[in-house]
Design a protein around this nucleic acid. Sequence first.
DNA 1: CCGAGGATTATCT
DNA 2: GATAATCCTCGGA
Length: 207
Amino acid sequence: MTALPREFYMPNAVHVARTLLGQVLVRRLPDGARIEGRIVETEAYTGLDDRASHGKDRITPRNRIMWGEPGRAYVYKIYGMYWMLNVVAEPAGQPAAILIRAIEPLAGLDHIAARRASPEPRLWTTGPGRLALALDITNAQNGADLTRPDDGLWIEAGAPVPDASVRAGPRIGLGQTPEPWLSIPWRFWVAGNAFLSRPDKGVAGDR
DNA sequence: CCGAGGATTATCT
DNA sequence: GATAATCCTCGGA
């Protein structure tokens, strides 16, 4: 298996969020452990006008990765205790990133179990905070190049998810964000998958 | 089953 | 000094 090329991340963030579904996120820990998970839920954040995006205004020390090379990891801490894993998209100079919200564990389950308190696999990688804990992702992975195995975190090609299995809806946790950004359907997920951050009600909202 | 509230800190104003 | 792209626990029903 080989990592997806940088060109994969060049298109606009909404398109990349859609095509990331089904791809395989791979983590190689310092001790040699290998963990793999199929991406089943994503959210797109663009720059320019998107009021929910960290890239909405200007470059700051935290968000500078968003303006850089596509195909790299943008990791930041939220609520004082959780790390969020994002993938930078669009050409350098344009702030855009995709938040990986959930993965379906494929390999390395025992390594995840060792790190997570809950004995319930469904609670290991369902949600951005949880998946970061499961894969031991912290700010040490900020800027990691996802197009190569060198940094211990990368993305490989997985089985494509057909349009019929893709659903879209509003992004989660946006709080005071004004419309239309609050409701724009830039969250994508694999219909009916058991590892979504919240249960799939079976409702479509396609785009 | 469900909703409320707490945890805990980097970041920006 | 307020807020945040979240998760977990606990109390009530």
